[in-house]
Simulated scan of single mutants.
Amino acid sequence: MINLTYQKRQRLKLIMIILIFTAPMLVAWGMVVWRLGIPEESMANGNVNVTLPELAQWPIDDNKPLKSGTWVLVFDCAQKCSQRSDELWRLHRALGRDAERLTRLRIGGEDPALPGEIVTRWSLKPEWARPNNAWLLDPMGQTAVAFGPHLSTQKLLDDIQHALKVNPY
């Protein structure tokens, strides 16, 4: 048994308290400097490295206003429009209480709008638009994630739920 004097015990307690509070900062600093423990890839199913203009600059017939402060799921309905539109309507319902935080904007298609969906058309189709692609836009109108036409609805739902979870307002 180690016999420590009162002063040495107090110093040891002080050093331990300092270590407890500074160790997380030192570890975080090491992670930033040496990139240890930080994943190199994104965890999203869609493409997060998207550089598209804001929604306000998209060449669409903007005859119906979007609810401000909501995320927007935009999809280009070029082929199998009614099927894809139905899948995204079901996805929207699967969000539960977060459904009010998302607005669906369908570009193209001949079918009438489903509940909670806004339908518009391209006034001039941009070169970056691909048939049947979907884009998730943040409340500011910036594209957060782009989804290819063959991505499953479940993976799309996972990405939307994650975006809504990490951005609570």
Rank of each mutant, 00 (worst) to 15 (best):
residue 48 V to A: 00
residue 84 R to S: 00
residue 11 R to E: 09
residue 67 K to F: 07
residue 129 A to Q: 10
residue 149 P to L: 01
residue 117 E to N: 04
residue 102 L to D: 05
residue 81 C to M: 11
residue 99 A to L: 03
residue 153 T to G: 03
residue 113 A to W: 04
residue 88 L to Y: 08
residue 72 V to F: 11
residue 135 W to H: 09
residue 90 R to L: 01
residue 117 E to R: 04
residue 79 Q to P: 08
residue 108 G to C: 09
residue 63 N to F: 14
residue 53 P to T: 00
residue 67 K to R: 15
residue 149 P to Y: 02
residue 56 A to R: 12
residue 75 F to A: 13
residue 58 W to T: 13
residue 90 R to E: 06
residue 146 A to L: 11
residue 133 N to H: 01
residue 12 L to R: 11
residue 44 A to H: 03
residue 82 S to V: 02
residue 39 P to C: 08
residue 160 I to C: 02
residue 97 R to D: 13
residue 57 Q to H: 12
residue 6 Y to P: 05
residue 48 V to K: 06
residue 4 L to P: 03
residue 94 A to I: 03
residue 3 N to A: 13
residue 5 T to K: 07
residue 161 Q to A: 00
residue 101 R to G: 04
residue 37 G to S: 13
residue 74 V to M: 09
residue 151 L to C: 04
residue 85 S to E: 03
residue 103 T to S: 15
residue 67 K to T: 13
residue 89 W to N: 02
residue 63 N to V: 15
residue 129 A to L: 09
residue 85 S to R: 02
residue 31 M to V: 11
residue 154 Q to S: 06
residue 32 V to Y: 14
residue 37 G to P: 15
residue 119 V to P: 07
residue 75 F to S: 04
residue 34 W to Q: 12
residue 40 E to K: 13
residue 30 G to N: 10
residue 33 V to S: 08
residue 153 T to F: 02
residue 67 K to A: 14
residue 28 A to C: 09
